[in-house]
Design a protein around this nucleic acid. Structure first.
Lengths: 109, 109
DNA sequence: ACGATATATATCCGTTAGGGTATTCTCGGA
DNA sequence: TCCGAGAATACCCTAACGGATATATATCGT
C-alpha cells in the first residue's frame, strides 16, 4: 500500500486535506473549501485518499464525514525511520571499515 | 520540495534504489541492476531522485557514484511526525471537549 | 588513436493523473 | 411529494509518467 499512500500524499491539494483531517473529522464540502478545485475534483481526491487507506468515510445524512486513518501515515513514517536507521548504522560502520582499509562501496559486496 | 520527494518515493523502482543507497553509495549501473528496467530508464529514475534532492552524484571516471541525501528523507519524516503529533493532541483534546459537551467537528470552528 | 564500457539524451508510445462540465443519486426539509 | 443541497459518477481533454529503442557523450584500456 506504500505506493498508493505516497502517491496520494504527493499531491499538494490532497496534502492540505490530510493536514486538515489531522485536526479532526470533516465533511467532503469542508475539505473541498480548502482547495481551489471544483467539487467533482475534490470527490476524486477523496477517493484517492480512501483507496490509499489514509481516510475512512461515514455517512451523516446527505454529507460524508471523513476521518484520518493514522495507521497509513504511520506506515510511511516507519519506512522512512527504518531507512534512516540503516543510514545511521552505515555511518557508524563506515568508520570501522575505513579503519580496516576496506572499501565502503556497495560494489564491493 | 515535498511534492517532488514524495513523487519520487512513490515509484517502487525508485524506492528500491533509495533503499540500496541507504546501505551505501552505488554507481548508476549497480542501482540499475536492482530493477527490471532498461538502462535509459534507470538514468531517468536517477535524475528524478536527483531533482527531488534525495541523492547527489559524483563522477568517478566513466561511472557516476550516487549517494543518499538523508535531509530529503528527513523532511518527509518530519512532516509525517508533525501530523501525527497534531493527531495525538486532537485525541487528547477530544476527551476534555467531550467532557464539556462541545462538538469535536472541524465544522464547528 | 581506437574500441569497449558506462551514462545520459532524444524520441516515440501507451497509460495514468488531474481538472472541468454535465449528470445522477440520495437525503432532508417544506 | 417535490425541491434543494451534498456528494459521487460519467466523460472529455491535456499534460505528465514510465518504459523501450536508438543515439550521443565521455572515459578507460590497449
Amino acid at each position: 500500500m506504500m505506493d498508493a499512500v505516497l502517491h496520494a500524499l504527493a499531491d499538494p491539494h490532497r496534502r492540505v486535506m490530510v493536514e486538515a483531517l489531522c485536526a479532526g473529522e470533516a465533511t467532503a464540502g469542508e475539505l473541498g473549501a480548502l482547495v481551489p478545485v471544483a467539487q467533482p475534483g475534490v470527490s476524486r481526491h477523496l477517493s484517492v485518499l480512501r483507496e490509499a487507506g489514509l481516510v475512512d468515510v461515514r455517512p451523516d445524512g446527505q454529507r460524508r464525514i471523513y476521518r484520518l486513518q493514522p495507521a497509513a501515515l504511520a506506515e510511511v513514517g516507519d519506512w522512512i525511520e527504518h531507512r534512516q536507521q540503516v543510514w545511521e548504522q552505515r555511518i557508524a560502520a563506515l568508520h570501522t571499515e575505513v579503519a580496516r582499509g576496506k572499501r565502503q562501496r556497495l560494489r564491493s559486496e
